[in-house]
Design a protein around this nucleic acid. Sequence first.
DNA 1: TTCATTTTGTTTATTTTATCACATTCTGTT
DNA 2: AACAGAATGTGATAAAATAAACAAAATGAA
Lengths: 225, 225
Amino acid sequence: MKRLKVSNNVIRRLPRYLRKLDELSAQGVSRVSSSELGKQLGLTPSQIRQDFSCFGEFGQQGYGYHVPTLRSQVAAILGMDRNYRAVLIGVGNIGHALIDNFCFSDWGFQLTAAFDVKPEVVGTVFNKVPVLSVEELPQYLDEHETDIAVLAVPKDAAIPVTRLLTVHGVEAIWNFTNVELTEPNSSVIVENVHFSDSLLSLSYFVSERQDEKAARAAREARREH
Amino acid sequence: MKRLKVSNNVIRRLPRYLRKLDELSAQGVSRVSSSELGKQLGLTPSQIRQDFSCFGEFGQQGYGYHVPTLRSQVAAILGMDRNYRAVLIGVGNIGHALIDNFCFSDWGFQLTAAFDVKPEVVGTVFNKVPVLSVEELPQYLDEHETDIAVLAVPKDAAIPVTRLLTVHGVEAIWNFTNVELTEPNSSVIVENVHFSDSLLSLSYFVSERQDEKAARAAREARREH
DNA sequence: TTCATTTTGTTTATTTTATCACATTCTGTT
DNA sequence: AACAGAATGTGATAAAATAAACAAAATGAA
């Protein structure tokens, strides 16, 4: 698979393609063109073709794309067939919700263990995932190859835990804390899920629309005057 | 406040600015320059100045930006002072976690009520938020002005609930379901929190790095040979 | 007060991203 | 088998985003 430097925007669109392809599969659709895909995703056909062309040639002229084939190609590009191993740090509300509800295996991940400080959760098992003490975390990481860590600890613990993780060979962090982890000289890959950022963007768009409405109303009023 | 068409990228950076400004405030820093801000956020000073200039002039030459002032300006741009009202639909694991852990008021939102179908949660109160039956949702929306709905229902309910919400005047949805809500002829504002998209992006970056490592190792081996 | 230094806001240049356009190639029907 | 229609992959073009450059203005020390 070719993989020259691919832009971030392209990468962010890939999971959406995957989701749409799964949806089409579920509907029994086995063939799709870039223009149909574009219509359903709000993108131009051209952009879709160019996105895929970063990784190879997956379509066929005069026909389009075979949905299952394209789906598996996109999955491979995203690394879903690599069976990455993950641990979860912090079995609070969000951590617990992730263990119970987020189907890691659907996305090619294996959640092998969870860690927490609270004695009342340590030793329990949720959804087949054992909860261990954070005391055991360093040893666990040394003994079990772990690709990513899901960080769902309280704010104050975020930085020290991150340091611990990176020291013990974890090279990627899926960050659910509201803390900016990106340290200057660190090479760890961080993917943030900042709820507040998302909500504030929404807040902006709502405000924008309300202001537009108000402006329209003001113009109307002036006209009547 | 000036507000010509501002690009999406700019808007997505605003919440990060806010977060960093809060952090600086907490550290007792009251003054910051675009270059310092840029260093801490991994952005160029130029970009930061240009971003702010979309909305007005908040800095002072030779001095930089007054942290509390800039903070409140950014907050105002994002609409945090508009006291938007929100309802939550779906008190499952993720919905529950949001009620308990996500501090809506910190971001200028007021979570007024939650709705669910399950008889065992209807009638309960979590964190001062009453859980009502979805049966009551239409009437509630008609009687209580509601700006945004937090959608945390199971997959199958996503589309019908969205329709219900928009019919009753909700104009924005914060979507935690894994379903693509963006319908062609709908004018509702949707902000998605797709965990899986985020994880798959991370998966891509990890794969990319592993491939690079493997390629380097292969080159090394060939050199020794 | 004066003046070197700092730092902004904005204009201009550069780079990146998205779209267009089309030659090429496959499909499927007659 | 032949051919009209469809749809890809890609090189060229347009648009958008980022970075650089700089004039204007405020700071703060001598």
